[in-house]
């Protein structure tokens, strides 16, 4: 339901454009910064367990399908970063004392849509801490 806290053991995926990646393809904290121009109040993510797929690759493939149906262009060199909900909330709190929340924000065309809230408290610090806990990355677009 909208506004529900995601379970700590679950995972979310975040689209990371090329301009937010290091040259070796790893994710940099710029990928976890809010778009102030768009007045974003949370970082958009997809809740993977909500997709009810059998494995991680199927979940990521579904995320690709969802993202490509939205109104933005998937960069050929962009990545999808996977993070654990409980790990980032705990790491941010222990390391900085800031509490962040990951809440369900379902949309009509994307039931998995969720948001990482409260990073605005200290965006630079919190984005560094979240980046430290990226579990894996996948290409946003698969080569044909």
């Amino acid at each position: 339901m909208k506004g529900d806290q995601l379970p700590a053991q679950d995972h979310v995926a975040r689209y990371c454009g090329y301009s937010t990646l290091a040259e070796d393809g790893s994710v940099l904290p710029a990928a976890f910064r809010l778009r102030k121009e768009a007045k974003e109040s949370y970082l958009s993510v997809q809740w993977l367990e909500c997709l009810q797929k059998s494995d991680r690759l199927s979940e990521v493939q579904e995320v690709r399908r969802i993202l490509s149906g939205k109104n933005f262009r998937l960069g050929a060199t962009a990545k999808i970063a996977v993070i654990n909900v409980g790990t980032i909330c705990c790491h941010v709190e222990v390391s900085s004392r800031f509490k962040i929340r990951v809440l369900h924000e379902p949309e009509s065309d994307d039931i998995s849509h969720s948001g990482i809230y409260d990073t605005i408290q200290d965006e630079r610090m919190i984005s560094e801490l979240i980046t430290e806990k990226v579990l894996e990355t996948h290409p946003a677009v698969l080569p044909h």
């Binding site: 937010t20 990928a31 910064r33 778009r35 102030k36 560094e128």
Partner: peptide
């Protein structure tokens, strides 16, 4: 450094050292 862009178009640069050491600048 590692160099990236923030959503505002600002330059982000980061230097990492041993044992978790880090200095990043926007």
């Amino acid at each position: 450094p590692d160099i990236a862009l923030t959503p505002d178009g600002n330059i982000y640069a980061r230097w990492k050292g041993d044992r978790g050491a880090l200095f990043s600048v926007e």
